Amino acid sequence: KDKDLLKGLDQEQANEVIAVLQMHNIEANKIDSGKLGYSITVAEPDFTAAVYWIK
């Protein structure tokens, strides 16, 4: 199951987060929520590491 990592990002921010996570071998998903911006989700086992790397 995926957990929400970040919400309300613009496309550039979302792409930067995806890139950082991929560099650390964390699979992440970018979801277009329309006017609400983009959300990033990661698998539950990767959540703690993902939070660490996006600081």
Rank of each mutant, 00 (worst) to 15 (best):
30 K>F: 08
20 V>F: 15
9 L>Y: 02
20 V>D: 04
45 P>A: 15
51 V>C: 14
13 Q>C: 15
11 Q>N: 14
32 D>Y: 14
22 Q>V: 07
24 H>I: 05
47 F>V: 04
6 L>P: 01
23 M>P: 02
36 L>V: 06
3 K>Y: 09
29 N>K: 14
51 V>S: 10
25 N>P: 01
10 D>A: 07
35 K>D: 12
3 K>E: 05
15 N>G: 04
50 A>G: 03
46 D>A: 05
17 V>T: 05
39 S>A: 09
22 Q>F: 11
20 V>W: 15
28 A>Y: 09
37 G>R: 06
10 D>T: 15
24 H>T: 01
52 Y>S: 06
12 E>G: 08
50 A>N: 01
24 H>C: 10
49 A>R: 11
3 K>H: 07
18 I>Q: 03
18 I>T: 03
32 D>N: 11
31 I>F: 07
22 Q>Y: 08
14 A>P: 00
25 N>T: 04
37 G>Y: 05
6 L>C: 14
31 I>E: 04
35 K>C: 13
12 E>V: 09
31 I>P: 02
35 K>Y: 10
21 L>P: 00
49 A>S: 10
25 N>C: 13
8 G>V: 03
53 W>M: 04
21 L>N: 02
41 T>V: 10
29 N>A: 08
4 D>L: 15
27 E>V: 14
33 S>N: 15
35 K>I: 12
30 K>W: 07
53 W>N: 00
10 D>Y: 05
1 K>V: 09
10 D>K: 08
47 F>Q: 02
32 D>L: 10
35 K>S: 11
18 I>W: 06
46 D>S: 04
34 G>R: 03
40 I>S: 00
42 V>N: 02
53 W>P: 03
46 D>P: 01
55 K>L: 13
39 S>F: 11
10 D>S: 15
9 L>K: 02
25 N>Q: 08
12 E>D: 12
42 V>H: 01
7 K>M: 11
53 W>Y: 10
6 L>V: 09
47 F>G: 02
42 V>F: 02
55 K>N: 13
9 L>E: 01
50 A>C: 05
38 Y>G: 00
38 Y>T: 03
34 G>V: 04
35 K>G: 10
24 H>L: 05
15 N>L: 09
20 V>R: 08
1 K>F: 10
46 D>Y: 11
37 G>V: 10
23 M>W: 07
4 D>S: 13
14 A>E: 01
29 N>V: 11
53 W>A: 09
19 A>N: 09
35 K>N: 11
18 I>L: 10
3 K>Q: 07
50 A>W: 04
14 A>T: 02
31 I>K: 07
20 V>Q: 07
42 V>P: 00
29 N>S: 10
28 A>C: 10
34 G>N: 03
52 Y>A: 07
32 D>R: 09
45 P>F: 13
3 K>M: 13
16 E>D: 09
49 A>Q: 08
9 L>P: 00
17 V>W: 12
15 N>T: 06
29 N>P: 01
55 K>A: 12
44 E>M: 08
4 D>R: 14
35 K>E: 12
11 Q>G: 10
29 N>C: 10
43 A>P: 08
48 T>L: 14
19 A>Q: 09
4 D>N: 12
32 D>Q: 08
10 D>G: 08
49 A>I: 08
31 I>Y: 07
26 I>T: 01
33 S>F: 14
11 Q>L: 15
51 V>E: 12
24 H>D: 01
29 N>W: 11
39 S>P: 00
15 N>V: 06
13 Q>F: 07
50 A>I: 05
2 D>N: 12
39 S>E: 05
48 T>K: 12
4 D>P: 14
41 T>C: 11
51 V>R: 08
30 K>N: 03
52 Y>R: 10
49 A>T: 08
51 V>A: 10
31 I>N: 07
55 K>Q: 13
42 V>W: 03
22 Q>P: 00
24 H>A: 06
54 I>T: 05
12 E>T: 10
23 M>A: 12
44 E>S: 08
55 K>I: 13
40 I>H: 00
41 T>L: 07
33 S>T: 11
43 A>G: 06
21 L>Q: 03
44 E>F: 09
39 S>Q: 06
10 D>R: 09
4 D>K: 12
48 T>D: 15
40 I>N: 00
41 T>A: 05
40 I>G: 00
2 D>F: 15
10 D>V: 04
29 N>R: 14
5 L>W: 03
50 A>V: 05
55 K>S: 12
48 T>G: 10
45 P>I: 14
50 A>Q: 02
16 E>K: 13
1 K>E: 08
16 E>S: 11
54 I>C: 05
43 A>Q: 07
4 D>Q: 15
24 H>E: 02
2 D>C: 14
14 A>F: 03
51 V>F: 08
41 T>K: 07
